[in-house]
């Protein structure tokens, strides 16, 4: 566990960061704010990012994607 929030943030996964800053408990106001549908879109981005990393790793290790 780190003591400094800035250092800590560098090591924290994007999922953890989003879990905090898009949390249902925080203030929902403003003229523009991320809605529930937008949150789903953001998490879809996380999923796609992870699956593309996985695909890259499979390509690097010589496994075929079709054989997944």
């Amino acid at each position: 566990m780190h003591d400094n929030v800035v250092d800590r943030c560098k090591d924290i996964t994007i999922l953890e960061v989003l879990d905090r800053v898009l949390n249902k408990g925080v203030i929902l106001t403003g003229d523009i704010v991320i809605s529930v549908a937008d949150v789903d879109l953001v998490y879809l981005g996380v999923k796609l990012m992870l699956s593309s990393v996985e695909t890259m790793e499979q390509l690097k290790s010589g496994k075929s994607i079709a054989g997944k």
Binding site: V5, V26, D31, V33
Partner: peptide, 23 residues
């Protein structure tokens, strides 16, 4: 989160959701 975290180190804060914008 970094900006809020840095402020939080010296005072109590109520954080806003990411992407809260007023015109």
């Amino acid at each position: 989160i970094s900006v809020i975290g840095m402020i939080m180190e010296y005072t109590t804060v109520i954080p806003f959701k990411f992407g809260t914008i007023f015109n």
